[in-house]
Amino acid sequence: MNIIVPIKQVPDLVEDLEIDASGKALDRDWLKFKMNEFDEHALEEALLLKEEHGGQVTVLALDTGDVDDSLYTALAKGADRAVKIVGDFEQGVSSRQAANILAQALRGMEYDLVLTGVQAVDDLDGQLGPLLATALGVPSVSVVAGVQVNGRTATVKKEFAGGLVAELEVDLPAVLGIQAAKQPPRYAPVSRVRQVMKTASIEEIEAGDPGAAGIEVRRMFKPETGKRAEMIEGSPEEVADRIVAILRDRGLIKG
């Protein structure tokens, strides 16, 4: 079974996010990037399926910057191939454009399953999975937690609100948007990643035509903070006293 996992670098949200001089994008100089957390789950699910059924896992990334570490880490975890799509991505790539580029790359590869992350925190024009599936003419299911493969079909669990789950059967090849793998993503020791960096290599292919963007950003801004919380300051004991007083006022602490 051939499984493709497209991975994306996203800003680490624990860091401060600053808007650049154009007012339309984040200031990249200050950003720290990491692999989209749902892609970690997509990769984990792919590795679990490979362990069960055999086959090959290929991680695929657009070279939007800082992708090598994530690709090597994926190899260290057990992916068989890492492919980087190079091109002019200076102006940014929307999900739709990324879908077009990935679709062109995938037409030259064999695949039974494409496992994407369910979504990334930075896309404005929708999730890549269904866009890619439509371009490839294959079915897709999003918000998937758990994939079982039997021959040419996959049985997937799709999550709805309230913990309700739909079980769907999907013919392969298919694109699945992974929310959570069957088990927490595995960890690759740094020593193993270093070793892989010496022995393995990342393949490169040229990006095809991304097409037009479709939407236009007018401005980026920080959310209004008018409704912000009343902040409690002081030592832990002072803070705790205040919270106790607030809860007691509302009858939530007896005594």
Partner: peptide, 12 residues
């Protein structure tokens, strides 16, 4: 976007 840390006005 960005986990609720940034708003973007866009047109189509």
């Amino acid at each position: 976007v960005y986990g609720g840390k940034v708003m973007v006005e866009a047109e189509a």
